[in-house]
């Protein structure tokens, strides 16, 4: 529909470019048209069915959409996502820099960490942290090999279910983020290091001012993926009896047996949150794409249309 008004625009410059006024007939795509019509019909009939099928119980969906437990659950899901991603990105950056370090011990430690936390299922890690008290009933800081130590308290008290969830999600996320950030740093041209060093930069300043901002461009799209999968991945913590969005919905349908409508409620909230996140991801990508592709792309667009 929207293409129609732009079509005369694209035809005119093409004719002008050829130097005379021979009319140009664009290639037609009859099969595409038929397929599109069929698909639209299928989609419409599916939507119609969802709307009129009473077993969806849209009335229940609506009545629970803004239920206090659901809202609180959504809030906790956001908290889990924000905290785990923040810790994950910070620790991941550190691990990435360690991994790229010339010091073989640092890079091996980083490699080992990534190997372990990527190599075991997140669900297992979460349950593991939840049951950490079975391994270490008391948490204490002290000197190794039986030296004096400062007892902090019982593990069950210190690591609450929420604490276990945050630990599990953050530590797991750090391993993935480390690899993403390492890839980003590796994508920056070696000449950038030379140029920054020749201008007297070194160490942290070189990383922060020159390398990381350029790595961001490569790091952002997969990080956006990670945030979105983290948002949904937090639903795993429902096994630890933490009242996140999914668990809150589960508690309600355990009472009223309206399983499907409440799962729809939870899904709608997940969809809303991921949509908002994608919007911000887009903005950030544009911000860090400056000087790389955003500006040339803007000027190139009209050219490719006329060609």
């Amino acid at each position: 529909m929207q293409q129609q008004p732009s079509q005369p625009d694209t035809k005119e410059p093409a004719a002008a470019a050829s130097g005379d006024s021979i009319p140009v007939v664009p290639l037609r795509h009859p099969v595409r048209l038929v397929l599109a019509v069929v698909l639209i019909l299928v989609a419409l009939s599916a939507a119609w069915d969802v709307a009129v099928n009473e077993r969806y119980r849209w009335d229940v969906v609506v009545s629970y959409l803004f239920a206090p437990q659901i809202i609180a659950g959504a809030g906790l899901t956001i908290v889990l996502t924000v905290v785990s991603m923040t810790v994950g990105i910070a620790l991941g950056t550190l691990l990435a820099i360690m991994r790229l370090s010339d010091n073989p011990i640092l890079s091996t430690i980083s490699r080992g960490y990534i190997w372990f936390f990527r190599g075991t299922p997140l669900l297992v890690q979460l349950i593991f942290w939840y049951n950490i008290a079975a391994l270490y009933p008391v948490i204490a800081f002290g000197l190794p090999f039986g030296g004096p130590s400062l007892v902090l308290g019982s593990a069950n008290v210190l690591i609450s279910p929420l604490g276990a969830a945050l630990l599990g999600l953050s530590l797991n996320e750090a391993a993935y983020m480390a690899e993403i950030i390492r890839g980003g740093i590796g994508s920056v041209d070696k000449g950038q290091y030379d140029a920054a060093r020749a201008l007297g930069m070194s160490g942290g300043k070189l990383m922060k001012r020159v390398i990381l901002p350029q790595a961001m461009r490569v790091v952002l799209p997969p990080t956006g993926n990670q945030v979105i999968s983290m948002l949904k991945g937090t639903s795993l913590v429902s096994v630890l009896a933490i009242s996140d969005l999914l668990y809150s919905a589960q508690i309600i349908y355990a009472n009223n047996y309206q399983t499907i409508p409440l799962l729809i409620v939870a899904s709608l909230w997940y969809l809303l949150m991921t949509t908002v996140l994608s919007f911000f991801q887009n903005k950030l990508e544009r911000r860090y794409g400056r000087g790389f592709d955003s500006a040339p792309r803007r000027t190139r667009k009209p050219k490719t249309r006329t060609a």
Binding site: D194, A195, R217, R290
Partner: peptide, 9 residues
Amino acid sequence: FQRFNLFPH
């Protein structure tokens, strides 16, 4: 440098 190495960002 041969390849300029300006900071593209």
